[in-house]
Design a protein around this nucleic acid. Structure first.
Lengths: 236, 236
DNA sequence: TTTCTGCACACTGCATACAATTTGTTCGAT
DNA sequence: ATCGAACAAATTGTATGCAGTGTGCAGAAA
């Protein structure tokens, strides 16, 4: 998801081969946190992590600052940075905020999207529908993310885009927790189609409303799954 | 503005006396950048700044990461971090995004604000009107910021609040550039009154629309001032 | 005189060493 | 036996030193 787009901070880092050691460390940790490989609340010692990642403490600390800004870790004075744990109510807040941002993005995109971008959106929509028919979860997810990202990009608003990226990192994390729980594929695909239609006729209001509702629904769906898994079993 | 609220990253740092050296450095630089004491585009050398602030390079570098996440500086590989310069079009983008965020905040606040918060909003409104009558610019600004902050806080959404803080730091900077240029005091006060009224009757839509428009207008007003000062004189 | 190439300097990036603060433990007192 | 205080071990915060990389200047060739 961030391998070719950017590093989550809003700055483009297409080739992260020569991207500074701390950025690579941050990227590694980001994916590790999102994938749940680092347990929430685990006392991440600097020395341990630095040796594990093969870097020194200095770049690791800098990477921590990055991740802290994204809300993935929480640093306290003279204490090990804690991996931010996913509270179910925070998830609902997160998607609520995300919905607001994407609403504005859709409204702006409806006015500013180029024909080329609309064309690409149509292509992505077709592909997503294909993946949906074939039941390919991962590919569906990738396309879905691309669509949302493209809409935000089409809004032509850098600060909005950065805010979106930041929140998205956290949302992606929650989404990973509830992996395979997206039972509302069909609904989601239909909603995307409606959004695309609104964008094509340049209807700002409709596009914003539809996308906002779409994100909200995704959030509540995730929330339900998380609430269930939390009550039934802590999932090993 | 951040002396008792927070450090701009969304995390509360009420007493910054014992807040880690890099955070203090970041706070210092933040205010310096906002106040324009550090020229945009100036090549901020690490050694020079570190000696100037009386700290070592390590915490300074960490502070830079913080500021970079807030969009106040822009770091390139193996190059001095550049102070982000304020492009007029970026200002319009900034307030556009800010308007979107505050719109959602107002909508949520209309539903969730406690009586206590509404009461405080009324108090602040009265005070602001008083300052407006007496022509006290600085006090007006402080109250104005408090009102907007309180509305966002009343939305009860942490991620939204953080995003708001981040964008606000940059906006505050632009606002400082156009200092004393707020000729639309009267309008602004009236708009605030209308927003408060909408919140009191719990009208989400109206509150959101009004606040969004209010922020947008502030942005365009600033944009006009900046465009003028940029064309006439580069301001020393 | 102009341009291209090579060298030297300066600055950033990283690692390591040192200082300060916190935490766990043990000993003593009540 | 339990609570408290002081000490010790560990861990974070900070400083400095070293290496890699980019920049600017100077000199030589066209």
């Amino acid at each position: 998801m961030q391998k070719q787009s950017d590093n989550g901070t809003g700055r483009k880092t297409l080739k992260l081969k020569r991207a500074g050691l701390h950025e690579r460390a941050a990227a590694r940790m980001r994916t590790m946190i999102i994938r749940g490989e680092l347990a929430p609340g685990s006392p991440t010692q600097e020395t341990r992590l630095s040796t594990a990642l093969g870097v020194s403490r200095t770049p690791l600390r800098e990477a921590m600052k990055l991740l802290a800004a994204e809300g993935l870790v929480e640093l306290r004075p003279n204490r090990s940075p804690r991996i931010t744990d996913i509270e179910t109510d925070q998830v609902s807040e997160l998607f609520e905020a995300l919905a607001g941002i994407e609403r504005l993005a859709a409204e702006l995109a409806a006015q500013r999207a180029t024909e080329r971008e609309l064309q690409r959106l149509r292509l992505l929509q077709t592909r997503m529908e294909a993946f949906h028919r074939d039941g390919l979860l991962d590919d569906y997810f990738v396309i879905n993310g691309e669509i949302h990202g493209l809409i935000v990009k089409a809004a032509r608003n850098a600060p909005l885009r950065e805010a979106h990226e930041t929140l998205l990192a956290r949302a992606e994390r929650a989404r990973y927790l509830a992996l395979g729980a997206e039972r509302r594929w069909s609904n989601s695909v239909e909603e995307h189609a409606a959004i695309l239609a609104a964008l094509e006729i340049r209807d700002s209001d409709a596009a914003g409303r539809l996308l906002s509702a779409h994100v909200q629904r995704t959030g509540t769906a995730l929330w339900e799954v998380l609430a269930k898994t939390k009550s039934s079993g802590p999932a090993a």
